[in-house]
Amino acid sequence: MNEPDILDQVHDWRADGRGVALATVVVTWGSSPRPVGSQLAVDEAGGFVGSVSGGCIEGAVVREALDCIEDGKPRLLDFGITNEQAWDVGLACGGKVQVFVERVE
């Protein structure tokens, strides 16, 4: 019933030998569906648990996370979600979020 625990999932993936990156919402402006501290864990195959938005930016964050797993460099990503773009993907969140992505060693 409860959502899978992100840190436990990261632990399990690492124990399984998989490359993993962790994305965390660090700043939000305006109406943003997920609060500061929300996390998304991504494994090297692109599987993920958790969320950093209502679904509008997860695809882009997963792509950056896969690059981060490759090169190990932390990243700070800015997403300004215009209402129009948001409408295109079916989510009228209209907020802005900043997401930190780091590789888990």
Partner: peptide
Amino acid sequence: MKHATLEALRGLRAAKTPIALATHL
């Protein structure tokens, strides 16, 4: 995130210890 940091964080959380993770962005 270092592996040791992840495991320390999980351990502190399991022990119900209030803890903050500070990250230099």
